[in-house]
Amino acid sequence: MGRPPLPVGTFGKIGFLLLPSGEIQARARFRDFDGRTRLVSKTGVSRAAAERALKTELPARRGPGGAGVITASSRVSALVEAWLAHHGWSTGTERTYRSVIRTSVLPAFGQLTL
């Protein structure tokens, strides 16, 4: 069984490597805003310096910017609206999807955060 997935925008346990240059590399798995988990690393002259550099880098990682960005703290209702706005369905398909979303999805999940 693998590791449980990290929540979007969070990191796992920090590990350290001694590099041939004598520097220390701090690294951790980070769940990026596209949902993919990536190994992120930073180096420093000591463990503490490498860890500080990594902990400074991780919060600075951002998803795509701009107004109306969907983040981990967005509500399902905002995600639904963004999803509906970016598809080019026929009128009938869009009407059906909006009806199902309005009557089933939003009442049950609309106010939950991602």
Rank of each mutant, 00 (worst) to 15 (best):
R31S: 09
R31W: 04
D32T: 08
F33G: 04
F33A: 05
D34I: 07
G35S: 10
G35Y: 03
R36N: 14
R38K: 12
R38N: 09
L39Y: 09
L39N: 14
L39E: 14
L39M: 15
V40H: 11
S41L: 08
K42C: 15
T43L: 06
T43C: 09
V45S: 15
V45P: 08
V45Y: 09
S46Q: 06
S46N: 09
S46T: 15
R47Y: 07
A48C: 03
A50E: 09
A50P: 03
E51Y: 09
E51S: 14
E51K: 15
R52F: 07
R52Q: 14
A53Q: 10
A53H: 12
L54K: 04
L54Y: 04
K55P: 06
K55R: 15
T56N: 14
T56A: 15
E57P: 00
L58Y: 04
L58S: 05
P59D: 04
A60T: 06
R61T: 01
R61D: 00
R62I: 08
R62Y: 06
G63F: 02
G65F: 05
A67I: 09
A67C: 03
G68A: 02
G68N: 07
V69I: 08
V69Y: 01
V69K: 10
I70W: 02
I70F: 02
I70A: 07
T71Y: 02
A72T: 10
S73I: 07
S74M: 05
S74C: 03
S74I: 01
S74Q: 01
V76C: 02
S77C: 07
S77G: 00
A78P: 00
L79P: 02
V80S: 08
E81K: 03
W83K: 08
L84A: 06
L84M: 12
A85N: 13
A85V: 06
A85E: 10
A85L: 10
A85Q: 05
A85M: 04
H86M: 08
H86R: 15
H86Y: 00
G88H: 12
W89P: 00
S90F: 10
S90T: 15
T91L: 12
T91G: 06
T91D: 13
G92P: 00
G92I: 08
G92S: 15
T93Q: 10
T93Y: 09
E94M: 15
R95T: 13
T96P: 00
R98H: 04
S99F: 12
V100L: 08
V100P: 01
I101Q: 00
I101C: 03
T103P: 00
S104K: 11
S104P: 00
S104I: 01
V105W: 02
